[in-house]
Simulated assay, not measured.
Amino acid sequence: MNNQPYLIPQQAATFEEEIKKSVFITHLAHTPSIERAKAFVDEVKQTHASARHNCWGFVAGRPENSMMWGFSDDGEPSGTAGKPILAQLSGSGVGEITAVVTRYSGGIKLGTGGLVKAYGGGVQQALKQLQTIEKKITTNLIVELDYGFVPILQSMLPQFGAQEVAANYAVNVELVIEIEVSQISLFTEAVINKSGAKAIVRSQNNE
């Protein structure tokens, strides 16, 4: 499993242009699952029910995870819409994103090359406007420690971007810490060093 952070859309974006009397409207949205991606496609199709085509592509997980990709030409000639849309998305390095390109046809044929350029180009322009944020991959750790070490541990958390999410006070203290996966080994090493190997760090999933 890849635990590196990746970019996701911060908010939706749209881009509209007219090419040979056809209006192309590109809609981008954050869709963290295939179900959400398909729901967004349906929403756009309902909003633009009178449009000739609502072609789409999605990257519903990590940018490089092609198992979470999908696309449709929605009635356009095969390969002229869905694939160029997906190619722009998969090449952008942004994950959890869906693009739907609505086409109101103006009666002038664009040809296959023109369609590829229109659908791919619209997504490319919309991506330029898109604001993204970094999605961090986090997990929960349990740190078992004695009472005297609690304030020291709590003071260490910010330097690892970690936070305390729960605490269980018994004979010893068990703190549940949310932390980025990429920081686990450094954090564990620091806790063991600071506590003189008295604190125990384990994954919450091993319970």
Rank of each mutant, 00 (worst) to 15 (best):
Asp146Glu: 14
Ile142Arg: 13
Pro158Lys: 07
Val143Thr: 09
Ala39Leu: 05
Leu145Asp: 02
Asn54Glu: 14
Ala87Tyr: 07
Gly57Pro: 03
Pro158Leu: 08
Gly196Thr: 05
Thr26Gln: 08
Pro151Tyr: 11
Ser90Lys: 15
Gly111Ile: 01
Pro158Thr: 12
Cys55Asp: 01
Ala162Trp: 07
Asp74Val: 06
Leu175Cys: 11
Pro5Tyr: 01
Gly161Phe: 11
Asp74Pro: 07
Leu175Thr: 10
Glu164Tyr: 06
Ser92Phe: 04
Tyr147Ala: 12
Glu64Lys: 13
Pro32Arg: 00
Lys136His: 15
Ala49Thr: 09
Arg202Asp: 08
Thr188Arg: 14
Leu127Trp: 02
Thr138Gly: 02
Val123Trp: 02
Asn65Pro: 09
Ser72His: 04
Trp69His: 11
Ala199Asn: 06
Ala60Phe: 00
Asn206Met: 10
Gln10Gly: 14
Ser182Leu: 11
Met156Pro: 07
Ala126Cys: 13
Gly111Ala: 05
Ala81Trp: 03
Ile137Tyr: 02
Phe58Lys: 00
Phe160Leu: 11
Tyr6Trp: 03
Val201Thr: 12
Glu207Arg: 14
Glu180His: 02
Asn3Met: 11
Ile200Phe: 11
Lys117Tyr: 11
Lys128Cys: 10
Val171Asn: 15
Glu178Ile: 01
Gln154Cys: 11
Lys45Gly: 04
Tyr119Ser: 03
Lys194Arg: 14
Trp69Phe: 11
Pro77Lys: 08
Lys109Gly: 01
Asn172Cys: 13
Ile8Val: 13
Val59Asn: 05
Thr138His: 10
Lys128Ala: 10
Gln154Asn: 15
Trp56Thr: 00
Ile200Met: 14
Glu178Tyr: 03
His27Tyr: 14
Leu145Tyr: 03
Ala170Cys: 09
Gln159Thr: 12
Gly120Tyr: 01
Gly148Lys: 12
Thr26Pro: 05
Lys198Ile: 08
Ser185Gly: 00
Trp69Ile: 00
Arg103Cys: 06
Thr14Met: 08
Val201Met: 12
Leu186Gln: 13
Asn65Asp: 15
Gly120Phe: 05
Ser105Asp: 14
Ala49Arg: 14
Leu110Gly: 05
Ala51Asn: 12
Ala49Cys: 12
Val173Phe: 12
Ile19Gly: 02
Glu76Gln: 06
Thr188Ala: 10
Gly148His: 15
Val23Gly: 05
Gln46Val: 05
Ala167Gln: 15
Ala199Pro: 08
Glu16Gln: 13
